[in-house]
Design a protein around this nucleic acid. Structure first.
Lengths: 128, 128
DNA sequence: ACTGCTGTATTGTTACACCAATACAGTTCC
DNA sequence: GGAACTGTATTGGTGTAACAATACAGCAGT
């Protein structure tokens, strides 16, 4: 597994990382019981500090996604299963993003489009 | 116009606001020459500090989206035009998001799905 | 001119993200 | 036992986000 950062996002790096790991589990790219790279190793790969990776791991542990075994390493919690509906949705999302790009939309415009849609529908549900 | 914040996003409020204004321009919800609410007025509506709104406005001005007239107010730059291809893409995005929700996906899962897709394709283009 | 609106600027405070560096404490293996 | 790996914890520093509170300065209407 390799991860990327969006440095212009304004979103904390440790959050971006934890979300990407979560996503890898949901799509089956990472499987329950798998061992993740060590704090320092991954930090070096991503060119961030070890504390940042530790924070991401620690967050995932508190969410039940990771099991941190002091002295041994970080392992994906057993009992997690890839979510088939997420896995299936990937093709659809990929197609839409490709299509939007063909139409000349910038990544940021695509992000705003989706974020607006998500916010809109949740706020509508909340009765605004 | 009314705006919302995603407090769990980890993204700065002033960025969220500026992006929503940008989006409103792109989709035609706000038009060139339109006057935006005053710093203090909008801050009260959104329950944030006036400095946060000022920061968002100031950012948009530096990007050429807003024209800040000291003493008069904030106006959308003339010479901006709604982007038809963004406007058209909205329906497609709305349909996909609705579909994903019907399939039982959480908002966060949808966000991860799209962010992963956007990151993946840009990094692929960069030759990783 | 005055009043009331605008954006602008400053100060000070709190909290957090991120970093580097270091030490500490479990685990595994030779 | 000792070496080499793990995660954990602490310290100290930098930069930014966000707040409150205040003052300043431009513009418009009465």
């Amino acid at each position: 597994m390799h991860f990327y950062f969006n440095l212009k996002a304004g979103q904390p790096l440790y959050l971006q990382l934890s979300q990407q790991i979560r996503h890898a589990v949901e799509t089956g790219a990472l499987r329950p019981g798998d061992q993740l790279p060590g704090i320092r190793t991954l930090a070096e790969q991503l060119v961030v500090s070890a504390a940042t990776v530790a924070k991401a791991y620690s967050l995932l542990e508190s969410e039940g996604v990771l099991e941190l075994r002091h002295g041994s390493g970080a392992f994906l919690a057993v009992g997690l299963k890839p979510l088939k509906h997420v896995e299936n949705a990937r093709a659809r999302v990929r197609a839409v993003v490709a299509r939007l790009r063909e139409e000349g939309l910038e990544d940021d415009q695509i992000r705003r489009l989706f974020e607006a849609e998500l916010l809109y529908q949740t706020e509508k549900a909340a009765g605004r």
